[in-house]
Each structure stands twice: as C-alpha cells, then as structure tokens.
Simulated assay, not measured.
Amino acid sequence: MSSVRIMRTRDWASPVPPARRELLTATPEVADDTRPPVLFVPGFGHGAWAYAEHWLEHAASRGFAAHAVSPRGHGSSEPAPKATLRAYAHDVVQVAAGLPRQAVLVGHGAGALVVAHALARYPARAGVLAAPVFGGWATLGLALRRNLFGTLPAAFGGRLRLGRRQLFGRDLPEPLARDYTRRIGHASARAQWELLRARAPENPVGDPPVLVVGTPDDRVVPRSALDKVARRYGGAPLLFPGMGHDLMLDTRWQEPVDAILDWLEKGGE
C-alpha cells in the first residue's frame, strides 16, 4: 500500500498566498448527480479558454458539469510572475474543494504535472493526464532538438515559445493555428525551472484511477514519456495518432474527450 503524507510542514509554515482565479463553467441541461464534476486544468501558457473552445461544452452535452480553471498567472487570472508549481497545484485544489461534489481532475501538458501534485492533496474521484509534461532534462533535450530557439530562453529564465509544429497536427486550418498560438502566454520563470528539475509527484490521496491519454505524434512529449507516466499509475496510455500536442484544440479534438468521458462513465476502469 502506498503511503501518503498527511502533514506538510511547508504548507503551514509558508502558505501559498491567495490569488484571484478565472473559472469557466458549462452545465448540462439536465443535472445528473451520478456523474462527477470535471475540472480541466490547462498547461503552461494556456488558460481556461483552451477548454472553452470545445471540451467544456462537449462534456456538459454529455451530462457532466464541466469547469476549467486558469491557475494564477494564466488566462484571466491574477498575474503571478513568481508563481511556483506548488501555487498552481494549490489553485487547483482550492477550486476542486469548492465544487459541490468530489471532482475528476483533468490536466494537459505541464498542467498534467500540476494535477498530479494536486492529486496528492485532494481526494479526487479520478485523474486524467493528457499529453503529460512531467519535465526533466530528457524533456528539455527533446525540446531543444525540435524547437531550439523557442526552448533555449526558457532554460535561462526566459519565455518558452511553442509554435504550430509543436502544438497542432497538419490538418488544423492555418488561421486557427495562428489565433491559438497568439493567445498562449507563459508560466513564471520559477515554475519553468521547477519543471526542468522534475520533482516527482507524491502518491495520490485515496488511490483514484488515473488515465493517461496522448498521441504518438506529439512533438513535445515523446512516446517513451507517455509510457513512463502511464506505468507510474498502473496502466498504458490511450493514444490518438495523427494529433498534435494540444489535443483539446486540434481538428480531431472530440476523439480524446469522448474517450475520457466514456472512461468516466465506466467508472474509470
């Protein structure tokens, strides 16, 4: 049986300061108390808007109360140039704890690492890690090979810049791709550096089921990393070939979210 830390000295000795957070919500036409609320968490530079494009309303159309949070410094949340991964996870836990029922946490990209840290503090109904970026020097090496000039500044505290080739499949219309990339901001330099250090998340509270989804054609997350994260949670990744890293914005966005919702309907099995 895995152990879970109950008392964290740092949490009370150095609490995360409060921050105003953006929360977008889509509710089903007919409430269904048998289905858990779903809280979507974006990756670095993205905001709740990335889920509001497609996944938020689609989840509601399938009977799930759906929410998307922008952690501090993202989207329309309060600016936070010195935010840490711990602060991002704190935002997720605070929003999830304020929902009326035990929620499912869904994180994308580096937001999947944030969700993994939040799962160690919040007893989620289930967790979903989409195209998870768990960091480390191997991830940096891949990013440098595929996106040298966009990645190198981030290694020295600058802004990480991801372009169309890193984020989307070839069939996404160019005007949409340009619009999405223009809307992407950046995480704090400190959080980016913490991502490179790749401190492993603690074990989830209550051992919830965790699903890993991704694409073997991801130009940000190598297939080996998908397999490694999935093994950590006792499974194999659910793959969607031909898609880009931003699963929720790519042309075939409906396929992964339907797979996630189907999995939840089956009880996370």
Rank of each mutant, 00 (worst) to 15 (best):
E174N: 09
P175Q: 00
L176N: 09
I184Y: 01
L176F: 12
A154Y: 05
E174K: 07
L167R: 12
D179M: 06
G157K: 01
R164T: 09
R165K: 11
F168I: 15
G185Y: 06
R165Q: 11
A177Q: 13
F168C: 14
D179T: 09
R146V: 02
D179Q: 11
A155D: 04
L172G: 06
R161S: 08
R161D: 05
L148K: 01
R183D: 12
A177P: 14
R183A: 13
L167E: 11
L148Q: 00
L167I: 14
T181F: 01
D179H: 07
T181K: 14
A177W: 00
R159D: 03
T151Y: 04
L172S: 04
R159G: 04
A154G: 06
L167C: 10
R178Q: 15
P175W: 00
R146G: 10
R182H: 14
G185N: 05
R170I: 08
N147F: 02
R145P: 00
F168L: 15
R164Q: 09
G157H: 03
E174M: 07
L148V: 01
I184C: 09
F156D: 06
L162F: 04
L148Y: 10
G169Y: 03
P175K: 00
L176T: 09
L152V: 13
L172V: 13
G150S: 02
P175A: 00
R159V: 07
R145Q: 05
D179F: 05
L176D: 14
L160D: 07
A155M: 12
L172N: 04
R183Y: 15
R178P: 13
N147Y: 03
A155V: 14
G157Y: 07
G158D: 10
F149K: 13
P153A: 02
